[in-house]
Simulated scan of single mutants.
Amino acid sequence: MDVHAAVITRGGVARRATLRAAGFSAHHIAQAVRRGELVAVQRLWVAVPDADPYLVAAARDRVALTCVTQARRLGLWVLGETEAHVAAKPHAGEIRAVGARVHWAQPILPRHPDALIDPVENVLATVAACQPFEPALAVWESALRRGLVERGVLERLPLTMTARRLLEAANPFADSGLESFVPPRLRWLRVPIVPQAWIAGHRVDFLIGDRLVLQIDGAHHVGAQRRSDIAHDAELMLLGYHVIRVDYLQVVENWPWVQDLVQRAVAQGLHRVR
């Protein structure tokens, strides 16, 4: 294996010290840079020319990708990310991560010197400290649902009180991040809320009480999916259920209106068997 291939196996960005420990001399690394096979990233790192720009920036700034930035890269549900979130050692000295939010907290899992991305446990802990409860809960539930981390593992880690609240509240069966917002926001109604209930051959997002169904549409609810949703709504109503269907923007940007619909339905007893 040549030094170019060795860097590729390490994600496209590698520390010079790690490459030397693997048997590549400083001369071999310098030659690869001169030939254009590698690009120098500051003094300590090299990268292949088409390396992930996020990883290159992390190496340049001596940080690791974490919080909502790494959560999104892992495919987890993130409500918003207006700036990059990176992590640095508590005593790392001056960090010049321009345009990024730097998290200085001690990581739960130690970071290897080669690490440019945080493991999922550190990501969740940083999200817990950084984000409001509901968006953080959506990330945590997404990680549990996708099997990226086990609840038992998280329970054994030295989590903060906020992180433990998130772990206690997290439902790994929530189907989308938006569904993480609903139970905490409607708990005051004191009505049973069952996520992902199975009715008439399909799952519904929420069954409130015995007969009130709340469906939350994402961007994919168009075309054939939309026609299927309409048909299922009709079947539910024929079976005696009442359906409230709202979308992403209504939940995120106009929650009082959504809450008003639900509380009016509950006040009319539409959640009860008649």
Rank of each mutant, 00 (worst) to 15 (best):
W255C: 07
V194Q: 15
A6H: 04
F206Q: 15
A47L: 09
W257H: 12
D229L: 04
E155K: 09
V213P: 06
A64N: 02
V262H: 00
T69R: 10
Q215Y: 03
R164K: 13
G12H: 07
V102N: 14
R73N: 08
E235Y: 01
D260P: 02
A84I: 12
A265F: 04
N254T: 11
H242I: 06
I117L: 14
H271A: 08
R185K: 12
W77G: 08
W188V: 09
N171H: 06
Q42K: 14
D175Y: 01
A136V: 01
A125R: 10
P192N: 07
G23Q: 02
R34T: 13
A125F: 05
Q259R: 15
I208P: 09
D50C: 03
L166E: 07
M161S: 13
V251N: 06
A30T: 11
R35I: 03
S180E: 04
R165I: 01
V46G: 11
V120W: 00
D61T: 15
F173Y: 13
G11V: 01
D114S: 14
R101M: 11
Q31E: 15
P184T: 11
A14V: 05
L189I: 08
A58K: 00
R35Y: 05
Q259M: 09
L44P: 06
A14Y: 03
G23W: 00
G11K: 03
R146V: 06
M161R: 14
A22W: 10
E141W: 06
L116F: 10
R264W: 02
A143I: 13
L261I: 06
